[in-house]
């Protein structure tokens, strides 16, 4: 006890600011981690199927995503329960695909148009009917590089 009372000072106690940079960095890292990785809010539930012959998609700027699945609980009242297509962050109609692709193409350098990939993130339980319709639409829009998104199957 005496150790502390010995010091004796009249000035008001100072709050240490030495840790402030650390706190700021911590917050910064936290936000970096939580915000960057989610690019679109999923309105459909997508449980990817498993596969072994996987290719990594390089260059994210050349990839656009098409989600197919049943709407999540939150959106079932609005969109029903049958499998639906989501383009970007909104539920769309199959006829919106060509415009969606064109919108992406504008952002990409013309020399790389041939390397644009459509990544189909389709729920494993969706029936092929709607998938086929999407594929046909992609073929008609001359978007032929397609990636069937899947998770790696552990042996």
């Amino acid at each position: 006890m005496s150790k502390f009372s010995n010091k004796g000072g009249k000035e008001p106690p100072k709050v240490s600011t030495a840790s402030l940079p650390d706190i700021v960095f911590m917050l910064l890292f936290f936000f970096m981690v939580t915000t960057v990785l989610r690019d679109a809010e999923l309105k459909v539930a997508v449980q990817l199927p498993f596969a072994t012959e996987l290719t990594k998609l390089e260059q994210k700027s050349l990839v656009h995503y098409l989600y197919l699945g049943k709407p999540t609980k939150k959106y079932q009242a609005l969109y029903g329960t049958s499998p639906t297509l989501q383009l970007g962050d909104k539920i769309s109609n199959i006829n919106d695909i060509p415009i969606f692709i064109e919108k992406h193409k504008i952002k990409v350098n013309e020399s790389q148009h041939g390397r644009i990939t459509s990544s189909l993130r389709v729920d494993g339980n969706v029936t092929m009917g709607i998938v086929q319709d999407v594929k046909t639409k992609l073929r008609k829009s001359n978007q032929l590089r397609v990636n069937y998104s899947a998770k790696i199957k552990q042996q």
Binding site: L37, K56, L57, V63, L120, K135, L144, R145, V146, A150
Partner: peptide, 16 residues
Amino acid sequence: TTIDVDKGVLVKLPPW
């Protein structure tokens, strides 16, 4: 955090 790299089966559709 695993940075979600998209992997999948790459196919080339035939022209329409």
